[in-house]
């Protein structure tokens, strides 16, 4: 078990800088999720930690050892790829044991380790199959098995669940969380899905445009987003965010209020507007309305609420739930 430390890590392709100085301290045994929109540099950063992309400048240590320029196989990491990257011409057993066989380990030792890893992932009956003959979830587990058998200090996951359907994704989320608890290893997990980030992470790193926006526990980020970007990225449905004159009227550059932090009433409140649309999700209902001179607003209320499109509705923010930022909203800008 060892931590990972990034000091002013940068990467550029020619004049184009895509990772713009990342400082990050990942503690031993932590489950860290890199999250951000596509193109924010999260996968590149992960691949730099893996050694698959060169670091342009900065310092990267794993377990206290400088590995900035070390070979990928010398870093004590294992990686699960988005595409799984299983060797199509090898059986499951050969896939899992490939690294050991390259290292010239004795056959018996390889077989034993492969069997052990396979057993822990319920893959034993599939050991002689080729990847082509496996389902998505099984391939995913083989990829994890290949990582486990290396006995790494740090596991790297690159959007590992994005090729699975929704129900399988929920199941694999649990399995990976279990794996983390069982092995206690450090894990770094990249995703664009904020639900995965919220449910799995000890610590979330929100990346945007090659920079860290905020680092914190899931509930920290939810309750105290440091920037309008984080505020808009974490939480579903998205926080209502206003800038310009509307925000200045409330004494800030950017103002945000979560749909679930609005209290609706058909009689009175701070803002009023005509309901355009009501989405009924069962337990909850989302009420969309437009506040004249302010903007579009969404509120979450109970599923049985009687609001109908065309009616006028009043909304009031709950005490202490308002977010005020001194930076302009990057989306609106």
């Amino acid at each position: 078990m060892s931590g990972v430390e990034l000091k002013d890590i940068r990467k550029s392709f020619g004049a184009l800088e895509i990772i713009k100085g990342i400082d990050l301290d990942i503690k031993p045994g932590e489950f860290v999720v890199f999250v951000g929109p596509s193109g924010c540099g999260k996968s590149t950063l992960l691949r730099m930690i893996a050694g698959l992309e060169d670091v342009t400048s900065g310092l990267l240590t794993i377990g206290g050892k400088d590995v900035t320029y070390a070979e990928p196989s010398q870093r004590g990491i294992a990686m699960v790829f988005q595409s799984y990257a299983l060797y199509p011409h090898m059986t499951v057993a050969e896939n899992i044991g490939f690294g050991l066989s390259l290292a010239g380990r004795p056959k018996a030792e390889i077989a034993a380790k492969v069997r052990e890893a396979a057993a822990s992932l319920q893959l034993t009956h599939l050991l002689d199959r080729k990847p082509k003959a496996l389902s998505g979830g099984q391939r995913q587990r083989v990829a994890i098995g290949r990582a486990i058998v290396r006995n790494p200090q740090v596991f790297l996951f690159d959007e590992p669940l994005s090729n699975l359907d929704a129900s399988l994704r929920a199941q694999m989320r649990l399995e990976i969380t279990d794996l983390h608890k069982r092995l206690g290893a450090t894990m770094i997990y990249v995703t664009h899905d904020q639900v995965e980030a919220m449910t799995m992470a000890d610590k979330i790193v929100v990346l945007n445009g090659g920079r860290i926006e905020q680092v914190g526990s899931p509930m920290d980020l939810y309750n105290k987003p440091a920037t309008p970007f984080v505020a808009g990225f974490i939480g579903s449905p998205k926080m209502n965010i206003y800038s310009g004159a509307a925000a200045e009227g409330l004494g800030c550059k950017t103002y945000g209020i979560r749909p679930e932090d609005l209290t609706l009433s058909s009689e009175s409140g701070r803002w009023s507007g005509k309901i355009r649309h009501v989405e009924r999700l069962g337990a909850d209902a989302l009420v969309y309305f437009r506040v004249e001179g302010f903007g579009d607003m969404v509120a979450r209320t109970i599923g049985s609420a009687a609001f109908q499109p065309g009616e006028t509705v009043w909304a009031t923010p709950q005490a202490g739930a308002e977010h005020r930022f001194d930076t302009p909203n990057p989306v609106a800008a």
């Binding site: 990928p72 990686m79 790829f81 060797y87 690294g99 290396r150």
Partner: peptide
């Protein structure tokens, strides 16, 4: 041929010719 395979092999400790 997906490049991820090269990456996976590299992490598995394969030399370029391997």
């Amino acid at each position: 041929i997906p490049r991820d395979l090269d990456g996976a092999a590299l992490i598995d400790g394969a030399k370029p010719w391997q």
